[in-house]
Design a protein around this nucleic acid. Sequence first.
DNA 1: GTCTATAAAAGGATAGAC
DNA 2: GTCTATCCTTTTATAGAC
Lengths: 212, 212
Amino acid sequence: MGQVKMPKVGRPPQGTAPRDTAEQLKQSALTLLARKGYSAVTIKDIAHEANLTTAMIYYHFKDKTDLVRATIEYAIENALQHFSKVSKNTDHPAALIHDWLQMHVSLQSDISKLLKLIVDYRHSDMRTPYIDAAIRHFYDTERELVAACIRRGQRVQVFKTGDPDTVSDLISTFLDGAMLRSFLVDDFDIKASIEMFEATLWTSLGFDGRWD
Amino acid sequence: MGQVKMPKVGRPPQGTAPRDTAEQLKQSALTLLARKGYSAVTIKDIAHEANLTTAMIYYHFKDKTDLVRATIEYAIENALQHFSKVSKNTDHPAALIHDWLQMHVSLQSDISKLLKLIVDYRHSDMRTPYIDAAIRHFYDTERELVAACIRRGQRVQVFKTGDPDTVSDLISTFLDGAMLRSFLVDDFDIKASIEMFEATLWTSLGFDGRWD
DNA sequence: GTCTATAAAAGGATAGAC
DNA sequence: GTCTATCCTTTTATAGAC
């Protein structure tokens, strides 16, 4: 519609802004897919969200499902990047779990989007072994990160009780619930909810609250 | 395709089987909508699942969204019926919470379907005040049932700690997570997961495990 | 790399016979 | 109440100009 288009000169924009057209399309797809799901989102919607036309999608991707698969990979990679940061910042086991929970508060938007994408994908007929493996890897990383931390906490006597793997699943399941509720309930206070859970968790693990 | 159709004689089938065509359609829609979501399910799919043709959907319902709205109502009514049973069977506050959790294990299939329907509906553009109100009523009932039970438990000194409303939300959020995981993870052991949560909950509420 | 225009397919909805 | 046949709209996907 007669939009003026700036010619691209020099390096593409830096920072969080999308770097190229393909990534721009994946980012747009991610937003829309999380909001409405695969079938409800048309390639026109995605192209429009990215200020492009449908033909551009077929220039960069084979078809609609190819774009969606690329988008899932993209979202998983992003999430895993954030995961790896958490384990770097802190040493105390309880502090690491705390950071883990807090990350879900601050990245709630991204993580709940990914979760919705995965639910959608799992019930679709476009599954591939490769994407299935990527999703499994994502869950395994999550599970192991927390379980390892609890194991370490028990070795140094910070945590007294609980099977590490079981507790890790308990935490993940609760966090999934919190992500879901943030989608579902308008005025859901995810921060308060996760903090309440944290308190419950410390009681259950026999952690006395001494952070040093 | 030349299917032989038995003439309907006498009373329709009794028990859990669908009683009439409209209910049969709602039941079929529920199954498919929970599996694939509104846009991914075609009226042809639904008609086929019910062993009928698309025209029958338009005989019983105004259009596709009308059928979906009726299906959500239907699923909520079913769930609320089950809810009301729980509060009748037991008296001890801890036993009631226990039954509440166990109900989510045994009715996991129905409840997770409803949950998926609601997520789908909330992000659709077919929302009506009436269905919105029905969903809110569903959540309020859930919340109040558990909160009232905890309040009573504190009055009779069975539970020692925790704000009833906050704890009620904690329970609901975890259960939502468990429902989601049962959709998401193939070999998810919902029974074990909820039992683990129950143990955590008793610790957190200061319940000593004396059921008398 | 990006657009316009259009072909091809799928899905929602209706008319009319039985 | 139920079916067959069909219309109309939406959506996916491609061809070809710039």
